[in-house]
Amino acid sequence: MDTTTFRISVNRNAHIVEADPATPLLYILRNTLELNGPRFGCGMAQCGACMVLIDGKPVPSCSLPVRAVGEAEITTLEGLAPAGDTLHPVQQAFAEEQAAQCGYCLNGAIISAVALLRHSPNPTEEEIRKGMQRVLCRCGAHARMIRAIQQVK
């Protein structure tokens, strides 16, 4: 299990990381870069808790080995807002709609919603459900999340 040096770009910053090439990106983000957005949920790409944007596409980071990242730009929940301490409009909408209970799935929900809205800025409810299908929420906050996405200006 030899380690290799990787140069990855996360939230518009370049990072040099030493890791076993098979290490899922999630552990690099959480443990090496100490990011809090992506969370471990299943390790099998079934629940979406670990979702990040890779070149703008939502990808479960638990099942993506760091060696496969290459030069892609990784964006986590922390890096959605363009600058400083403001929030991305989707983050804002989720907070305003109080679209969570425990909030553990919020990372995957917001990341998926951001990707969805980039792709179709005025989605129908059906499109929202489809775009959010990979995210599991156990508290039953789905209805609020759908409302939050509909509120994003």
Binding site: L35, N36, G37, R39, L77, L87, Q91, A100, G103
Partner: peptide, 12 residues
Amino acid sequence: DIYYMAAAEPVF
């Protein structure tokens, strides 16, 4: 706390 979670603060 929902705001903090949405903002990726270390809530958990």
